[in-house]
Design a protein around this nucleic acid. Structure first.
Lengths: 215, 215
DNA sequence: CGGGGTGAATTTGTATACAATAGAAGTGCA
DNA sequence: TGCACTTCTATTGTATACAAATTCACCCCG
């Protein structure tokens, strides 16, 4: 049996991420408790965590609402993510071992298979992509970095981005990952860092182009 | 009247930072409740916050203890802090206005006065230093960055560092701050970024030299 | 018609009691 | 003596009841 606070965390998170919740929408602990089927106590615990990931925000008078980011904030988020993930990649390049390297290759193979389908399996792509980046973070062996990253990998944005990826763009991700693996194999921290920076910044630009059609 | 969870947060934080708690020491919610004079409920709230700042850690079996950092982790902390504070300085350079600029000058004057005393007033120095950096962070206008920074500015380390500063080193901090203000006045983001990077990295090295005497 | 204030209703904050779980300490058996 | 098992204790997790604070609506008065 999963702890109630964990249940609440996952349910509320899913509620926000799977688009049932509108950005800016007000949330009450009571409603969240109802959604997750537990009492307010573990809900408050879960909310604290979501607040740190900045998925929910607390207004001046302690009322909760679903996060809503300005264009500038999304921009900043990608910038910070690029900085930190690049740093993680550099650390990982110095520390990675053969097993992890093979694991990365395996994950990227799955990712490629998800792309090859027609239409591409975006969910599987995102899942593999997440595991790829998570494993790099793990190889970086920096508890502090691991603590910081969740606040920057906001799935709503990731999802919006990837669903609008063209097949070409999805393919480029796989190519980036291959190059990252090569950099890791060579234990070349600078190379890994550069590739990761490009990788994230490209994602940002496909996001910002498709997300603001100005139509 | 302050909320009980806030009271708990401050009391526990002080307990850890003012050295009454030994790194690695086990903490129970009960004890913490006793220390802060409130019930366990707000204590749990406070602990969540401290956990995010990585001042307390949760073992596999959910037991709490005072954080204890390896040399490598302190190293990594300074590296991340240098990256993010430098980024904050660059953003601030582009956004800062006259009022904030004057406020920074005022704070740095206080800092200089604290240094001039014999012996230097380290507490006042740290206080002014904190406010100086906080104001820059505010000028950076990045909620996400503001959320991330607290996990990197760990006072126990800051305190250890500054108390071992020589008068020369304290003075160099004031000089760095002056140069930062100059960079801000010129709205030169690159300059601000470089100065901030040096500033943090110098602090790191005075820390690592004095903290590991290897005697 | 507008402004301010009073009171009800909603929402968050706190304490306490109890449940579940992990850890420690003992106990019996080989 | 060493090891497994059991019981007991310490600690964390959850629910609920109630307190404090905030919001909202309404009414009264100017």
């Amino acid at each position: 049996m999963m702890p109630a606070s964990e249940t609440a965390y996952q349910k509320i998170r899913a509620f926000i991420l799977q688009g049932e919740a509108v950005p800016g929408m007000q949330l009450t602990e009571e409603k969240l408790a109802e959604i997750s089927g537990v009492s307010r106590t573990p809900v408050r615990d879960a909310v604290r965590r979501l607040e740190n990931e900045m998925l929910v925000v607390r207004s001046a008078s302690k009322r909760l609402s679903v996060a809503d980011w300005s264009e500038g904030e999304v921009d900043e988020m990608f910038t910070l993510r690029a900085m930190l993930e690049a740093h993680a990649a550099a650390r990982a390049a110095r520390r990675i071992d053969g097993d992890a390297l093979n694991a990365l290759r395996g994950i990227n193979d799955e990712l490629k298979r998800a792309i090859k389908k027609s239409p591409p399996d975006v969910t599987a792509f995102l899942e593999a992509n997440r595991r790829f980046h998570d494993l790099i973070l793990e190889c970086a062996q920096s508890p502090r970095l691991s603590k910081l990253m969740p606040a920057l990998v906001e799935q709503p944005v990731v999802r919006r981005t990837a669903q609008q990826y063209s097949k070409t763009q999805l393919h480029q991700s796989a190519v980036d990952h291959d190059e990252l693996v090569a950099a890791f194999a060579a234990k070349d921290a600078d190379w890994a860092k550069s590739v990761m920076t490009s990788h994230i910044r490209r994602a940002f630009h496909s996001f910002s182009i498709t997300a603001t059609p100005k139509s």
